[in-house]
Design a protein around this nucleic acid. Sequence first.
DNA 1: TCTTTGATTGAGACCGGTCTCACAAATAAG
DNA 2: CTTATTTGTGAGACCGGTCTCAATCAAAGA
Lengths: 355, 355
Amino acid sequence: MEKKNLHSSSVTVADVARHANVSKSTAARVLGGYGVTSEKVRERVQASAKALKYRPNELARSMTTGKSKTIGVVVGDIENSFFGIAVRSITDVANAHGFNVILANSDENFDVEREAVNVLVGKQVDGLIVTPASRYEIGHLENLKSENCKVVLFDREIPSLDMDTVVSDDQEAAAAVTKQLLDAGHCRLAFVTATEEKDSDADGALHIPTSSVGRRIEGFLTACNEGGIAREDSLIVLNSDPKAGLGVSISKMLDQPNRPTAILASDSHVALEIFKQAQERNIEMPSQLSLIAFHNADWTEVTRPAITVVDQPVAQMGRWSAEQLIKRIEGCTEPALRHVMKMKVINRQSVVPPA
Amino acid sequence: MEKKNLHSSSVTVADVARHANVSKSTAARVLGGYGVTSEKVRERVQASAKALKYRPNELARSMTTGKSKTIGVVVGDIENSFFGIAVRSITDVANAHGFNVILANSDENFDVEREAVNVLVGKQVDGLIVTPASRYEIGHLENLKSENCKVVLFDREIPSLDMDTVVSDDQEAAAAVTKQLLDAGHCRLAFVTATEEKDSDADGALHIPTSSVGRRIEGFLTACNEGGIAREDSLIVLNSDPKAGLGVSISKMLDQPNRPTAILASDSHVALEIFKQAQERNIEMPSQLSLIAFHNADWTEVTRPAITVVDQPVAQMGRWSAEQLIKRIEGCTEPALRHVMKMKVINRQSVVPPA
DNA sequence: TCTTTGATTGAGACCGGTCTCACAAATAAG
DNA sequence: CTTATTTGTGAGACCGGTCTCAATCAAAGA
């Protein structure tokens, strides 16, 4: 006597229609909220729907409308508070517009990212917000426009891609903050990032896959250069041993005889690790080591010294990206935007002149 | 000359079939990887698929199979590192099994949670991992089983619901850690949580909607009681003014003449706020104020004093919940499990005898 | 050589919605 | 009172897959 065997015992428009003694079309009209129906029929159908506990199958709806009301978000790692905040503001905006968010972590690994993007597109997301792990590997993003899938790039840009992008003024902020270190009198500086070391090409130039980090490094080096710092005294510390973690690179840096007197950390995780290792080594901060970190993580103001940070407007960036994406999904066709958001330095206690 | 007008220009099995000169059924068989096909045809179809850049529409697939290969995760707030870690481990397990995760934040608000659950079920998720905001409002969860949607409760239990649940030993850990404070000689204690104050009923008993917090409070009170602490010296501080935030409740507590000499913070956000306010007031820690926090947040070991914490195995809990959910989705029908994970106290420097 | 068997393939229904179109009844205009 | 409109309803195609079932064909057994 069962009616549906394999498929869930869910009730469909047809069931409601039967119960209300109307055609499937009519029931669909009132339940779907389109077309016209008479008051009487509408009430009858709604009553039946309530009685049968009808709940529309959004999948089927998406199937015919071609819009899934879902967006995909691919970030590096949701555990990182930077992305946590971003995802939060994105989901808030999305929900407010009736969208849901499918979340994927790339672990800053390009292959994982591509796979995630492909799966999400397969699931027919209406759009994608991506923090591309690499500005060089972009094949998976190139063809998305033809797939009816809009894309917004978050925090990292890929100029060749002609897509909506929100970034912060990484280069300018890094330069400004480096200059601040220089002005305080430091002349052995380091920029530390968890980005993995990639082979630099023939000319020996660094090719940092993460565009935001790359631009920060540019800003750092430019400022160092203008400040007359010798190349060997403006260190770039990358994650030389991904399996062992960034910790060993930081150890190496801190243990070298002429260690830097000031460090610029490219995110709060990095800053935390530096802070820990300095504590372990009894390196007095800020007197023996000045530190500035990107991202105003919540804990940076309770350490002693409290950490001077470059505050990235993460939530606003997230909001912008989601709003822009939804505009696109709703049909906006203006040329791709590149939205740059200004960062703000929050001066605390972790920067003083070198001993 | 366009072929598909409204719907995206995506290529379907039918397109591939036409191109490969086989029937739709046959093309579907090779592309869907089911049934049998001859080697020759298989190669031909695959070649056509490649040529046309065919990509399966997972929505359509879900439509007929009844499985969306998607799970919904409803947490309080993804910005909170506790949930960040949980969601990370959940998505990892999910992905490893071919599932995607739709994320929703409830803000610990029951109405938002119910709405989220309904939307997710409408999107035909195969299962749901929920951190229910309230153990009293459960109507939205009760009927899910009949909807072909499995559920696992994360970090909070609802005994009446008979669902798979993973929690930690909140009551025991809270009692143990309270006893530790007592043993150190404290006799004015407070338990602080961001949970909102609800009207207590006629008998004046507290009814904490968040089960984990409720059990921690029970543990705290039990230990206080056994330690002979007067009821008025075992303070429970709730979020009395949600609009203004927990900060004001903490201020009030800290500013009262007989403020507690030891505090148990129910999560790391709370602990951070307490730490900040103590710093602002020049309350010396740990000498004038001992502190223990739930959740081993990354920053708790770099503050001075470093904070003694109750380490919850968040990642393992996340993993368990995802694995259990997937087992259910795959058909497991054993009776509902209640999995309790042990927490571990990490002793650092924030607990000393009162002055 | 004729039937039996097994391997492939094609036709078409189905999932649960949306949407177009034709038709009938009711109302307005001539 | 007839004709033109409007309004509400039903029949059925469609979205892009899966899946059942019958048909075809070649190899194998009688």
